[in-house]
């Protein structure tokens, strides 16, 4: 790792002020992606601003028909939260599938979402549930938030403070994990809100995306059978040593059917 200076922010304002005055400052949340990237010298910020002590970024609360989760909430906290288990169990189950137990003890919701890794799990829930990403100065709808691989709507000096997830009637996430890294080769989040259905796909493309044809088919008939015959195009999907674009396209169909089946079992 190259040298850098370190500042543990005492408040959100302190974090913002420090970020604005740094030449090339980076926010440190759980560090589960940033630190390995710095160790490989793929990133070399001159200052890290640690958000671990910022109280405004903590906490899990229910507001009417939404669950609002602070950006610094660790994956293990989401996985074991009784409030989330009783409102959006699919979200707790998704958090339990991220990485390994040690990573889940450090990694955070805000860090994962801000990074927009194409194979991360949380973006599927954020888009699948139609969540709202709340920052220090505005609210961004999930459909606008994720732009591309490692690219979001966030401005350079903007900090995610929390994410507000609407509580669905039913939801489920199914992923085909890479057997070594546990990142999603393809993962599908399905959520039903009354007559509206949302289907979000992670791992398969440059960043998370919705599957319109599946949503329409499921709004007419919420069953795995409704997805028979829907062909997922391999155009533009990721291709690497782990899976071809065609294989990922196929997996999207399989994971979507399993997610719908899981929704119906609850």
């Amino acid at each position: 790792m190259y040298e850098f200076s370190y500042h543990k922010a005492a408040s959100l304002k302190d974090a913002l002020d420090t970020l604005q005055s740094a030449d090339d400052g980076k926010l440190l949340a759980g560090g589960m992606t940033l630190l390995p990237t710095m160790k490989q010298r793929l990133a070399a910020p001159d200052q890290l601003i640690d958000l671990a002590g910022v109280k405004e970024l903590a906490g899990i609360e229910k507001h009417d028909n939404h669950v609002v989760i602070g950006a610094m909430t660790r994956h293990a906290e989401v996985a074991s939260s009784e409030l989330i288990e009783s409102t959006i169990p699919a979200l707790a189950a998704l958090a339990e599938l991220i990485g390994d137990p040690q990573v889940r003890n450090r990694g955070t919701l805000g860090g994962s979402v801000a990074n927009s890794d194409p194979a991360a799990d949380y973006p599927a829930a954020v888009v699948g549930l139609g969540a709202t990403v709340i920052t220090d100065n505005r609210s961004i709808e999930a459909d606008e938030f994720f732009v591309d691989m490692f690219e979001t709507e966030l401005e350079e000096h903007e900090i995610i403070t929390s994410i507000s997830f609407p509580i669905p009637d039913t939801a489920a996430y199914m992923k085909f994990p890479n057997p070594a890294s546990r990142y999603a080769v393809a993962g599908v989040f399905v959520a039903r809100f009354g007559s509206t259905v949302r289907v979000a796909v992670t791992g398969a493309g440059g960043s998370v995306f919705r599957q319109d044809a599946m949503e329409k088919a499921l709004e007419a008939d919420f069953s795995p059978a409704a997805l028979e015959g829907i062909v997922v195009s391999a155009d533009g999907l990721n291709e690497d040593i782990h899976a071809s674009a065609e294989y990922r396209a196929h997996l999207v169909g399989v994971m979507a059917k399993r997610a719908v089946a899981a929704c119906l079992e609850i």
Binding site: L28, G31, L35, K39, Q102, V103, R106
Partner: peptide, 26 residues
Amino acid sequence: DTSQCGACVVHVDGKPVKSCTLLTVQ
């Protein structure tokens, strides 16, 4: 040294974490 193997696991405030992916200052 890439947070995969777990040989470096220690408990920080009671929770197992990979100490190769945590700064001492954290």
